[in-house]
Design a protein around this nucleic acid. Structure first.
Lengths: 200, 200
DNA sequence: TAAGAATATTGAACGGTGATTAATTTGTCA
DNA sequence: TGACAAATTAATCACCGTTCAATATTCTTA
């Protein structure tokens, strides 16, 4: 038996999330289970329920960590400045590369629906909003005449599109195979949507 | 015990798919299990394995049925003719309404990844391609200068975008709540993407 | 028509799952 | 040191997908 107070609840929580990420990366969504996560950190399944309400809440925290990394990855594009349109493209590609390189985790972000009794907490929505905020800035630069809500909407539309292209492209649901497809799609989407907004 | 030859294999297959759809509609993805499907058609789980390789193959057929309905729903928009751009919008809305009204089934279409030993059959990909073909026609009308592959790509881009907007919008992942959001997003996407292509 | 072959169907079993709980171990403090 | 509180486990429950021997039913042949 692991000794009491070897780890605080916070530590166990953190360890569990990290272990879950490892399992997810190595064995995909199917490989993820309470027993395996607990085993990987030297505890038993029951212990996890001291720290999370259930598996769904653990997954929520895994997803939060994924969002954080995604944010970091996209924000990193800001380090080398360029014109707004190129910046948006770079961000889109960063999103796509993250999705490709961390497929199971990225996928879990969208395929895992929380049960009704566990609503999405506002701190989680805040993380999502921060992600969108990253792309709102270059949009604002590119189209200074857009008011705040229009800009917000544009960022959602653009990101939904990029996301859809990633989802369908990376899942080979487009019946035009190959790795090229997804990149091409994203590029065409960003270019023409922005172009359309400009010539509105 | 159900009497032998009460139903042919084809009948059992069809009954199982229909039962699965009902369960899916009423209890969501979580409620779907071999035992429940079998029970609903008066058989035992084992019988299903005479007719499907495994649950994944059953789900594949459920998804095929979903694609067929989706195709019918979108093709129905062609009955009342209008200009190409309006047609594409109508089709997008039809897609979205289907997704909204048949959420569990639509969602299963994308969230269920087949295991590696069960590759997606070509007849399934063909159904997907037929769906895309529906939107290729009005695109061709709107932009007659596009060559075949450009048109094909445009349809994929557009549909990826519409799909992404549905996924994120209907899942409330956009942190701009409300039912309005998804419709608005799709509208903005279609309008501006096409506008962008025209002014290219 | 009777017997035997063939097949449809079941029911039990296996190893897994998430979740809950009683029982046990451990650390802390009076 | 002893009692109390907290941490942890082990056992349990009700499921899951899948397999397979046993059984019930039909078909074929004599």
């Amino acid at each position: 038996m692991a000794r009491r107070s070897d780890h605080s609840r916070e530590e166990i929580q953190q360890m569990a999330v990290r272990a879950a990420i490892t399992i997810l990366t190595e064995h995909g969504k199917e490989g993820l289970s309470t027993r395996k996560v607990a085993g990987a950190i030297g505890y038993t399944a029951g212990t996890l329920y001291l720290v999370f309400r259930n598996l769904d809440e653990l997954i929520l925290h895994v997803n939060a960590a994924t969002l954080d990394e995604l944010h970091k990855e996209i924000a990193r594009q800001l380090e080398t400045p360029c014109d707004p349109q190129s910046m948006i493209k770079k961000m889109s590609m960063a999103y796509m590369n993250f999705a490709r390189n961390n497929f199971a985790r990225w996928s879990l972000l969208f395929t895992h629906r929380l049960p009704e009794e566990l609503p999405i907490p506002e701190w989680f929505d805040a993380k999502v909003a921060e992600l969108f905020a990253l792309v709102e800035k270059p949009i604002k630069q590119l189209l200074p005449d857009l008011d705040k809500s229009e800009c917000k909407r544009a960022s959602r539309v653009l990101w939904s599109g990029v996301h859809g292209a990633c989802e369908l492209g990376l899942n080979d649901k487009l019946t035009i195979g190959g790795k090229v497809a997804a990149e091409e799609l994203v590029e065409s989407l960003v270019e023409n949507y922005l172009n359309g907004l400009i010539h509105q």
